[in-house]
Nucleic acid binder design. Structure first.
Lengths: 347, 347
DNA sequence: GAATTTATCGGGAACGTTTGCGTAAAAAAT
DNA sequence: ATTTTTTACGCAAACGTTCCCGATAAATTC
């Protein structure tokens, strides 16, 4: 089963012209007579000619496509970010190739290799939670491939980065819970290597310290698979709830962790916020539909995608080597709902 | 900013060999001495040589990549289906390029054109809800490009198709509601052109008729943008609730419609199922977290993706033209929860 | 020792496109 | 009428790879 397309050569043959003439006519070159141009254009239209981007990629050594490396698309944050990416890329004439690591380092390496060999003009990366070795990115970056990191970033590579105000959000979240009377606040975090984890845990810590509370390591649990394995979230939760110093509130640090955490609480028959308050980092569209409605930190996913792709395309299209890089920090949206109601006033 | 890669020519130059020899050595051809082979292999390994798939695509006129055409990935059904697709494609050596139409016909046409010109070896398609004209697919299909439709299919093109048991699910859903004492069951459907809409509405109708109930057109509302515009779902809902014959139950026919419908009900301060029962077609992972928990029809998204890509790759790799096509129907999962509790026993 | 086979490699075309350079004919300038 | 310029087009190389067809030298056969 072969799938044949019309080429410039076919047009040339049909019209008794050389391929160069046809090519130039199609591009509207000034050195082609308007008669010939019209003839070529009309014929091309008639046979529905489409230039072969593969041939172009080979020749130009670029593909007008950019690769996106994320852990999974079945995740509100990333699918929203991808929509942001596409909204800009589309208008600026780039195509987006998405790859999922499913939080696996090996898979990330394979995907990045493939994208690079497919001649993507640049990479938009959010690291997998297993990734500690960055050589697969460093190699490409040193060879001149533009890369922009977003959300889960690294400081081992000097380039543009786009993140949410993770530190501040975690800080605000914790302060909010403290103000509402909660004192034993647990933090259910993602993998320890991830930048988002460090930033969020730091914000949480700082809020505690600023309020004269001790930082209790036992109240911070990490999900080293980023929540891909439900069991690990479950375990972390039961572990937390078994403590003598049982937490009265919990901050869930990612989308997956938030939903899993809610399910565990539900399965245990606990009531929110009476038994335990919950605040979740989640880009879910329906936090109002939970019962009770969920207090959330919503990351500016769409805008993060947009900013990241803008930076990347600027990098790609820059005539001179760029040496001045920036890390953009975008503001999250903190929406207070019922799941973190004041302890004293709870109905 | 150019990004240079090692080519077979570079290797040849470095080793004093011709490109053809290097190529053959890399492929393990028998007509290359084992010495030379070893030398080439070692050098290639050393400089981290990767064959250029673009050049290969150009030569072979195929790319070992398949294009996926869906309306949006920020949708549980489609992201799960894509995971199914990838799980198989990856193992069989194909790469997946995803494109989103955002339910726009024009965008779908552009995406399909681009995928085709990118020399995808085949297409996996779920139609946009605006699509009535299929010539963009027909043209490619007639030229020999393998296409498999899934979920939102068409009968204008003869090929493999994969769907869920939409008719049966809608039938079962309706029967379930009838058995539980609901008699004025509304149906909130997606765009009228879509196969899933027709199949589901038909199942709903049949269940009514089988129970001696009349089919009331006013109780069926269509969302012609597939729910991409929240307002239209809102309007449909308010319209339904304004009827003299106010419905006592509602079947929401897609993911988006289900969540929107729940939000509208919540905003109106109605209680489920006391004021109105709800059953939703949704692949949400958290129907237990809604309040009350939601009775759902969950499509076998992952498996549908798997089956569809299997059929497509078989088509692509088939030596002889395939003339025998099948439409696979996969079973959905109907889970009864609180939102459709029996009318009489409601607490 | 001559003829034939075998082993090992290189040349070059092809995939579809762009583009620098060359050139014939037509037009303009002398 | 000759020279110069312009117009309009073709040739060929290049991008990275594979593969058919030779070609050379060594090894084998008679």
């Amino acid at each position: 089963m072969k799938f044949e397309s019309i080429t410039i050569k076919d047009i040339g043959k049909a019209l008794g012209l050389s391929t160069s003439t046809v090519s130039r006519a199609l591009r509207g070159s000034y050195e082609i007579s308007s008669e010939t141009k019209k003839q070529v254009l009309e014929y091309a239209e008639k046979v529905n000619y489409r230039p072969n981007p593969i041939a172009l990629s080979l020749k130009e050594r670029k593909s007008r496509s950019i690769g996106v490396v994320v852990c999974e698309i079945a995740n509100n944050f990333f699918s929203q970010a991808i929509n942001g990416i596409e909204s800009i890329a589309y208008n600026r004439g780039y195509h987006v190739i998405i790859s999922q690591s499913h939080e696996s380092y090996d898979r990330e390496v394979v995907n990045v290799r493939h994208l690079a060999s497919r001649s993507v003009d640049g990479l938009l990366v959010s690291l997998s939670c297993e990734t500690t070795d960055l050589t697969h990115f460093i190699n490409l970056h040193e060879k001149g491939l533009p890369i922009v990191f977003f959300d889960r970033i690294t400081n081992e590579i000097v380039t543009h980065k786009v993140i949410a105000d993770n530190y501040q959000s975690a800080y605000d979240t914790t302060i909010h819970l403290l103000r509402n009377g909660y004192t034993k606040i647990a933090f259910l975090a993602s993998a320890p290597f991830l930048s988002i984890t460090k930033e969020r845990v730091d914000g949480y810590k700082k809020a505690l310290l600023d309020n004269g509370l001790p930082f209790d390591e036992k109240l911070v649990k990490h999900c080293s698979h980023g929540g891909m394995i439900e069991k690990e979230i479950d375990n972390a939760m039961t572990c937390l709830l078994k403590l003598k110093q049982k937490p009265d509130a919990i901050v869930a640090a990612t989308d997956r962790i938030t939903t899993c955490c809610l399910i565990t609480i539900k399965n245990l028959g606990l009531s929110i916020p009476n038994d335990i308050a919950v605040v979740g980092f989640t880009n879910s569209n329906i936090p109002e539909l939970f019962s009770p409605t969920l207090t959330t930190v919503r990351l500016p996913a769409f805008q993060m995608g947009q900013v990241a792709i803008e930076l990347l395309i600027d990098l790609i299209e820059s005539k001179r080597p760029v040496t001045d890089f920036e890390t953009k920090v975008l503001q999250s949206e903190f929406v207070i709902r019922e799941s973190s109601k004041p302890l004293l006033v709870k109905s």
